[in-house]
């Protein structure tokens, strides 16, 4: 305490020069967040770059513990619960439709064409007298297949491009960045039309077009985070201690980009469902005779002037499922963010 009295003002002021350097360093985390958000939990949470604070903490969802925490936190919100229930129903119905539908798909009722909903035909019949409900059930599995395969392909294409974009080889990264920038403006439907010339209408056209198109999107969206992870001290030190470039990419960069990749992919699944209905209607998607929601929707369009009600069901089905996939993505974004989801931090610790 005695020293305080002896400290001349000048020393304090000189000392300040020393202090500020240290202070400036220690305050960087604050400066990165929204300015003046000090003491405001809301300001912190809404920071668009929370990953900056913990770029090296792998937020991958390894282990069932984390999965359970994420699912529970999604389930705890109304929107998340809706999404999970709808998606679960979708999967159950798809599987069920393989062994059972209320009516045989090809069983047509010539006397009851365009019939309104009844006990016999839950959602009525279409122009050939086929049961609309049964076709929607069977369509569920085609759309599930399309969504899963498109997302998987988009994931492979996107991650490959992403890895090329953050690669240490200047040439590889420059070329891939420029290529993605240029090609990203090519619409999915154009890719589908080019593919449809030799392939005709086929499920593969949808999957390839969506996979490539959404893969490009994914690479562009996940790039900032991947770059951040690639430049983090952790990745740099791993490299310094002799880890190969590929090891660093797969052990550090990929796990850190995983949250944004997963969110983007779940949104892509919804877009793929929408693309299916559009492409099938245009005649370059699911071939005629194969049940799909796009097929049901297109069939019901033809006589809309006369039977407007038949168009409700397939459109409603598609909309509800796509809403669920979008909500799933939104809720997932929060549930796998360790800054928002505190329970996740406890599991990781």
């Amino acid at each position: 305490m005695a020293q305080h009295d002896m400290l001349p003002a000048e020393t304090v002021h000189d000392g300040r020069l020393g202090i500020s350097d240290v202070v400036a360093g220690s305050c960087q985390a604050d400066a990165v967040g929204p300015a003046g958000a000090e003491g405001s939990p809301q300001g912190r949470d809404s920071s668009p770059r929370p990953a900056l604070h913990t770029p090296d903490e792998p937020v991958s969802l390894k282990g069932l513990g984390k999965l359970a925490v994420v699912l529970r936190s999604m389930w705890s919100q109304g929107e998340g619960r809706f999404a999970l229930v709808v998606l679960a129903c979708w999967i159950v119905v798809s599987l069920a439709s393989i062994v059972w539908t209320p009516k045989k798909l090809w069983e047509t009722d010539g006397y009851h064409v365009w019939a309104p909903p009844s006990a016999d035909h839950l959602l009525g019949t279409d122009g050939t007298g086929a049961d609309v409900f049964s076709w929607l059930m069977a369509g569920a599995r085609t759309n599930l297949l399309i969504a899963i395969l498109s997302v998987m392909l988009a994931g492979v294409v996107g991650v490959t491009l992403l890895m090329a974009m953050v690669s240490r080889s200047k040439m590889v990264s420059a070329i891939s960045v420029v290529a993605v920038d240029a090609l990203i403006s090519i619409p999915t439907v154009l890719i589908a039309l080019i593919l449809a010339v030799p392939m005709g209408a086929s499920i593969a056209v949808i999957i390839l077009a969506c996979g490539v198109g959404y893969g490009l999107n994914l690479a562009r969206i996940a790039r900032p985070q991947a770059l951040l992870a690639a430049g983090s001290d952790y990745a740099v030190s791993a490299r310094a201690s002799g880890a190969s470039g590929g090891y660093v990419l797969f052990r550090h960069v990929l796990p850190n980009s995983l949250p944004s990749i997963m969110v983007q992919l779940s949104l892509s699944a919804g877009t793929a469902i929408l693309a299916e209905s559009g492409l099938t209607y245009l005649g370059v998607g699911v071939p005629s005779g194969v049940p799909s929601w796009g097929h049901s929707l297109s069939t019901s369009v033809k006589l809309i002037d006369v039977y407007p009600l038949t168009v409700v069901w397939p459109g409603l089905t598609v909309t509800v499922v796509v809403v669920a996939l979008n909500l799933f993505g939104d809720v997932l974004r929060q549930a796998i963010d360790p800054i928002v989801n505190t329970a996740l931090r406890k599991v990781a610790a």
């Binding site: 002021h13 300040r16 020069l17 020393g18 500020s20 350097d21 202070v23 400036a24 305050c27 400066a31 003046g36």
Partner: peptide, 14 residues
């Protein structure tokens, strides 16, 4: 003035 010098280097601070 809400921490007007925190983001600056030491000479600029003074």
């Amino acid at each position: 003035a809400d921490e007007p010098t925190t983001a600056l280097d030491s000479i600029a601070q003074r």
